[in-house]
Design a protein around this nucleic acid. Structure first.
Lengths: 188, 188
DNA sequence: AACCGCATGTAACTCGTTACATGATTCC
DNA sequence: GGAATCATGTAACGAGTTACATGCGGTT
């Protein structure tokens, strides 16, 4: 949120920002955004002031203080922030053998693939188009260049996941047809 | 944890299981494992009994009930469980333009790449080796086959992330050398 | 005697979610 | 008049973390 507050914005604005682009990398509800903004104001990273809205009730608009900028830049200069990943669907795959039903596994992997495939469509942080080949990056300023970088990393990672599903799907198909052959051989 | 409890195990055993293999897909501390086992016993998915330990104090060994198995299998048969992903490092990349220091970005991406690279080494659920090409999967039973599937999906996804870092790194390098040239041109 | 690995737990706290409460303005 | 959008919040709960408390048994 500190990063998003390069320009002044309200909690409601931030939610819109979370819903377009970063949605895939970070989700946040209003009920989390508002208290967090209040806390960041208390510790001095933000200031706020009420402003009349173009339409609707008055807004509380936040902006970053010098201390907030220091905090953000310290985070950016520190190590990659790699929290504990929790991929429940990997666990599902691991234990799915218990179902003794490869067709169920196949359906599962196809759904997973479709989900990732659908995500690639929604990719696109701010102005950077997802499929766009990054030629002429020299025209971009630092901010736009890093946004593009972010989108490209996201897109490539997603491609990797789709490839992972594809490989798994073909492994399952192979296993399925092998089992069919074994069955026929037994019958003969 | 229900999935892991195919054979009876204690909380301490489960922690060991979390630390070897699934560590990359799911992390859990003892202080989360113990209360969760207690809760699952309360709702009837597990039963427990104390057993003397080969060395050390008495253990509480849990096993899955029929209700627990039903619950697990319902989860396995349901949709892929895709919780909200929260990748803070993607956010760092997105806002790193503010530092106005491409060299810092390059260092960051290299660290990220190294981290993913290191993870590939630790991959390997139970008996399935990571680099192992999945030929002769016909010899595997359903459980072993799905464990292999799980490892392959993890490995491929990781490869995608490494490729994503590599692409970003080369983009930054290109941008850096372009900036150098511009500087020289300005000086001339 | 000190330490390590085995073993089980509790307490306090943070983070995040769902659900609820409220009210202004605009468009149909 | 009613619905949708704009706008800000609180309450209750669940999930997860760090830190703490306790104690057995074997090795150095």
């Amino acid at each position: 949120m500190l990063g998003m507050l390069r320009d002044a914005a309200s909690g409601y604005d931030l939610r819109r920002a979370f819903n377009g682009g970063p949605r895939q990398f970070w989700v946040a509800e209003l009920s989390q955004i508002y208290p967090t903004l209040q806390r960041m104001e208390r510790v001095g990273w933000l200031t706020s002031r009420r402003e009349p809205s173009a339409r609707g009730p008055a807004r509380r608009v936040y902006r970053r203080t010098a201390a907030g900028a220091r905090e953000l830049h310290a985070w950016l200069r520190s190590q990659p922030d790699i929290g504990p990943e929790r991929l429940a669907y990997i666990g599902q795959i691991a234990f799915m053998g218990e179902l003794r039903d490869l067709r169920s596994t196949l359906r599962f992997l196809t759904l997973l693939r479709d989900y990732f495939e659908a995500l690639t469509g929604t990719l696109g942080f701010a102005g950077a188009a997802p499929g766009q080949t990054p030629e002429r990056t020299d025209r971009l300023d630092d901010d736009a260049f890093h946004e593009l970088l972010c989108v490209r990393v996201g897109a490539r990672s997603l491609q990797g996941k789709i490839a992972a599903c594809d490989e798994a799907i073909s492994l399952v198909r192979a296993q399925l047809s092998r089992k069919r052959h074994q069955k026929e051989a037994t019958r003969d």
